[in-house]
Amino acid sequence: MNTVDEILDYAIDQEQLAADFYEDVAQRVETAGMKKILLDFSAEEKRHKKILLAVKTGEHELTPEQEILDLKISDYLVEVNVSDNITYQDALIIAMQRERAAYNLYSDMAKKVPESKLKYILIGLAKEEAKHKLFFEAEYDERVLTDN
């Protein structure tokens, strides 16, 4: 991926893949409550996709200079595998870790390119993933770590 459009297309596809991933897991899980949560996650990924589509058309600007709080919650949690009976806690950990992986991908790519519009876009995409990770980490902080 060498151009801005190529990287944006890649990022847009990734958001759709993430949305599809959550919908697939939602089909597998047994409880209606868990299904709903996963479908909400899917909807969140579709929202991210819409933002990136708007970036591509110039209707929305990425904000690479913005500082995004990193709660680092997901950094020290164990990897969770998808199963038919994942818990709410598991679902949030999966979501946090996916966002962290996406953030790392764009950050690493940004480090490898010289100063350019492409670098600017990659950093901007990394910041978007950081925002998504913060969303899930804040949910985890509120819903799971109630007593800690």
Binding site: T31, I37, Y88, R143, N148
Partner: peptide
Amino acid sequence: SAIGQSSNLDYLSKEVQEQLAIEWG
């Protein structure tokens, strides 16, 4: 470890849970 608690609704079948408004357990 005492970081929080959640519910165990395993005694409710999938069909029953489908009919109820359960969010985050």
